[in-house]
Design a binder for these strands. Structure first.
Lengths: 177, 177
DNA sequence: AGCTTTATGTAGCAGCCGCTACAAGCAGCG
DNA sequence: CGCTGCTTGTAGCGGCTGCTACATAAAGCT
């Protein structure tokens, strides 16, 4: 039997969460899909709550890394083009697992969970930075522009999640600049 | 003992869901807060799944009614003003319970639940109609304008849910017209 | 080698879950 | 009255939940 630690476990745990969501997470199926037992998850993480905290940290990190690898490195030609690029790429099927857990995180935030709020806020801040860096250099106010772009991207993604992607697309097309 | 039916039960059930969310809904606490037993909930609704379906229907209806009572009846002076009005009003504390269940619904959509997708889509369509009716009469394209307004509103609301309302506000301010 | 610390398996606890079998009450109706 | 059908209470089933007590194996360390 291979010795395991939080670090070696986390990728497998995160993969399971991306497929099955956070909302209905339970230790035994999670452990099984990572090749361990619930007993060992509690041993390594102390409690389910702290396991989820570690998971949120890991997922936030993984997301920020995915951003820089899956997305084109160069700047967009306009705010609208930037938003459209993010929207199109995150619409591809391989991003569905991430959004599945993302909306669980948002729901956790709305329920008042502090750990979820921290993780979600960090992810949004990181995404905001990414947008700032991908706006045209000619943008008159990249910080404010990135906020506008991020808001409409997120709205479009939520609408897509509930089967109304066309509405979100219209929002993107209405972005000025 | 008062005779109860789905119809007399639903308001109490919906109230409980607005306070406690849909994600962790379980029959016994739900029944207790409605003055019944899990036994009777299953009796009236057949199964938890069908109970949730009825609940989603009821909540969607209740939401559309709340829209017309809580919001000013007259048209806004601009797209931006319309979005800002909705954002401000829905930011008041009494709307928190609705958003709590709303983000649970979105999470259910992302998980692929058909009933959640239907309910969420209906709510968004109704909200879209509402925005169309509250845009200025001078709007050159109310349908497309309403889509743009709705997308940025929803993005702003999500960002507010995760503690980044300032980003969403910037998105609203960037709305043209 | 012996001893300590770390990692793991087995078994189980108390509690909750959706749901159901059974029986009783109760209303209306002949 | 007696019968019938709708509504409700009680009790419980099997299964799942997070978590733990206990024993054991494995890996250092001296």
């Amino acid at each position: 039997m291979v010795r395991m630690s939080r670090e070696t476990l986390l990728p497998a745990l995160a993969a399971h969460v991306m497929q099955n969501g956070l909302g209905s997470l339970s230790l035994r199926p999670l452990a099984r899909s990572a090749g361990t037992s619930d007993r060992m998850l509690i041993y390594h993480f102390g409690s389910k709550e702290r396991l989820v905290e570690a998971l949120l940290d890991f997922l936030a990190l993984q997301f920020t890394q995915a951003l820089d690898t899956a997305f084109p490195a160069q700047r967009s030609v306009s705010r609208r083009a930037c938003a459209q690029t993010v929207f199109d790429i995150t619409g591809q099927p391989e991003f569905a697992p991430f959004f599945r857990v993302w909306w669980d995180i948002v729901a956790g935030c709305a329920a008042g969970d502090r750990a979820y709020l921290d993780a979600a806020g960090r992810i949004m801040d990181r995404l905001l930075d990414w947008v700032v860096d991908h706006l045209p250099e000619s943008d008159p106010d990249p910080v404010e522009g990135a906020r506008a772009v991020l808001a409409v991207i997120e709205g479009a993604q939520m609408l897509r999640a509930v089967g109304r992607g066309a509405i979100g697309q219209a929002g993107l097309s209405a972005l000025e600049g």
